[in-house]
Structure formats: structure tokens, C-alpha cells
């Protein structure tokens, strides 16, 4: 009997223990650890940046127009240079992170949730409903997404909420199709058949047996989409349909600097770097999460591989 109480005690570790374990697993994957640090930095900037640097991002300084980076004579805020109106690029990056993360994040999450639900339905329930969903996705995909955005934003008036809506709408088919393809494969696996034979309800089969096996793929896809959405947002802003000045996003900063590429590369470069680093970090983190949550893969993070 002591045999039986022992493992159950070990099976439910205190919460702090689980957190420590997760941190150790993160520490062992150095790339993921760095990514986590960078993402944390970006999130902090988005949360507290605007209150720490309330005016600096908007303060014009016409003598410092297009000031080059790595010069400290104007103060540390100008370490990354200044834009065409002499505003500190560093301050603008910090301020811009809030809208960038908000728009890209909510658009990705919204598209992910809607796409996954529709994908699950289309994959699990074949027949008329699936056909309608899939043809809908085809139409959405064949329609130029920029044109769609123009129409929607023209009708609904440009606002952050509507930008998120449009961006999410145009990315839904990506998740939908991937999710459906995965579901089609997994629903034929024997453990699904075993659950059916036990009399499991459809909801149980879909959410307990199929979904957990689809999520890792979708997570990876979502982080890749994160960068794409940040750039789509910039093209909308460039056309004047996205975020309205004085608000700023990284994508808008890239677009603004486009005209000065030959004379002042840093205008587009720094926001571009911010976008790439965020996307890469998100991707590496997703990779780590996938490994850490897959029971068959977790050993890679649990003990060091001997060379």
C-alpha cells in the first residue's frame, strides 16, 4: 500500500515546484531563454513605456532631423538616431511597441481561435457544413486581402479595433486549412476509434482527443503569422487606413522611413530589427513550448545530453 501512496504524492507537486521545473527547462534551452528575456522586455516596454516616456516620442527637434545613430551629444534617447522630424527613434520604438503588440497579438489570437474552431468542425463533420466552410475560406483566400481591407476599413472607418478585425479575417483560412488537414488525419487514428467505442461524446473526442494533438502545429503557425501580421498592419497604416497619427506602430515606422532609405537607413532599420527580433523570439518560444508540452519530447529539456 505504501507503494501506492508514494507515486500519487510525487504526482501532485506543489505549484512552486512546477514553476521551478518550467524555469529549469527554459534555462536548459539557451535560445528559448534569450527569446523569453527579449519578449519580456518588449512586453514591459508596451506596458510601462508610454507612462515613462509620455512626450519624448512626439517632441520634434528640427535641428536633429534624421540625426544618425550612435551619437550621444543629444542625450541617450537619441542613441538610435532621430526620424525626419527629429523625434527620438528609441522613444518611438518603445511607444510603438504597445499598438504593435496589441494589434498583431489580438489579430493572431482572433484568427487562431476562429480558424481552429471552423477547422475542427470542417475536419470532424464532413458533409454540407464542411463544404460551406471550406468554400468560404477559398473565396476569402482568392480575394486580394488588401482590397478586402480597403473596403472594410472604408466602410467601417479606420480604428484599431477594425484593423484587428480585418487582419484577423484575412488570416483565418490559413489556420482553418491547417487545422482541418490535421483533424482529418487524427480522427482516423485508433485512439479516436477507441474513444468512440467507449461511447465518448463528439465534444469529448474533439476537445480531449483531437485538439491536444493539433495545437502544437497551430502554435508554431501562429508565431510565424505574428511577423506577417505586423507587416500587413504597416501596409494598412501606410495607406492611411491603419493606426492614425500621433499613435505609432513599428510597421508604420518602417513605412515612414521608406523614403529616406538612401540617406537615412536607420529610420526603417531599427523598427525592422524590432519586428524581426520579436518574430524570431516568438518562434523560438513556440518551439520550446511545443517540446516542453509534448510528453514524448520533453526529455530533451529535462536532462542534458551527453556528448
Amino acid at each position: 500500500m505504501s507503494d501506492m501512496t508514494h507515486p500519487t504524492a510525487a504526482a501532485k507537486p506543489p505549484r512552486e515546484h512546477a514553476l521551478a521545473e518550467a524555469f529549469l527547462m527554459l534555462w536548459r534551452d539557451k535560445f528559448a531563454f534569450l527569446s523569453a528575456c527579449f519578449l519580456l522586455l518588449v512586453v514591459i516596454a508596451a506596458l510601462f513605456g508610454p507612462s515613462l516616456l509620455p512626450d519624448q516620442a512626439l517632441q520634434m527637434n528640427l535641428r536633429g532631423r534624421n540625426a544618425p545613430p550612435f551619437e550621444l551629444e543629444r542625450g541617450w534617447l537619441y542613441i538610435l538616431g532621430a526620424d525626419n522630424m527629429g523625434r527620438s527613434l528609441l522613444a518611438r520604438l518603445v511607444i510603438g511597441s504597445r499598438y504593435t503588440l496589441m494589434i498583431a497579438g489580438s489579430a493572431v489570437v482572433l484568427a487562431l481561435v476562429v480558424g481552429t474552431i471552423l477547422g475542427l468542425i470542417a475536419g470532424y463533420r464532413q458533409g454540407r457544413i464542411a463544404t460551406i466552410i471550406l468554400r468560404g475560406a477559398d473565396i476569402l483566400m482568392s480575394f486580394p486581402s488588401l482590397l478586402l481591407a480597403l473596403i472594410v476599413l472604408f466602410v467601417l472607418a479606420p480604428s484599431v479595433g477594425n484593423v484587428v478585425l480585418v487582419l484577423a479575417l484575412s488570416r483565418v483560412p490559413v489556420y482553418l486549412r491547417t487545422c482541418r488537414a490535421e483533424v482529418l488525419e487524427i480522427r482516423e487514428r485508433q485512439f479516436v476509434k477507441a474513444a468512440k467505442v467507449l461511447g465518448a461524446s463528439h465534444a469529448r473526442i474533439v476537445f480531449l482527443h483531437i485538439l491536444p494533438n493539433v495545437v502544437p502545429t497551430l502554435m508554431t503557425l501562429a508565431t510565424l503569422e505574428f511577423a506577417a501580421v505586423m507587416l500587413s498592419e504597416s501596409s494598412l497604416s501606410f495607406l492611411g487606413l491603419g493606426v492614425q497619427a500621433p499613435a505609432v506602430t513599428w510597421g508604420l515606422m518602417v513605412a515612414d522611413g521608406r523614403g529616406y532609405l538612401a540617406s537615412a537607413w536607420w529610420l526603417s532599420f531599427w523598427p525592422g530589427v524590432a519586428i524581426s527580433l520579436t518574430a524570431i523570439s516568438a518562434n523560438l518560444m513556440a518551439n520550446w513550448i511545443r517540446t516542453a508540452t509534448d510528453p514524448a519530447q520533453r526529455w530533451r529539456l529535462e536532462k542534458r545530453t551527453r556528448a
Binding site: R189, Q190, F191, K193, A194, A195, V197, L198, G199, A200, S201, R204, L208, H209, P212, N213, D294, P295, A296
Partner: peptide, 28 residues
């Protein structure tokens, strides 16, 4: 009840054994 041919395929890889065995009670 049924036992299938391929034990690898007939158990959900993301569930712990205890949960797999308890699933019939969760359903019924």
C-alpha cells in the same frame, strides 16, 4: 469492450496512463 491491434495507435499519446484508464468512467 474492445482491444485493438496496435497498442501504440490506440492510446492517446498526450494523456497519462491513469487518465486513459479512467476515461470510460468519465464518459459513463
Amino acid at each position: 469492450q474492445v482491444v485493438f491491434q496496435d497498442p501504440t495507435a490506440s492510446l492517446n499519446p498526450r494523456m497519462k496512463v491513469g487518465r486513459i484508464i479512467a476515461e470510460p468512467w468519465a464518459i459513463h
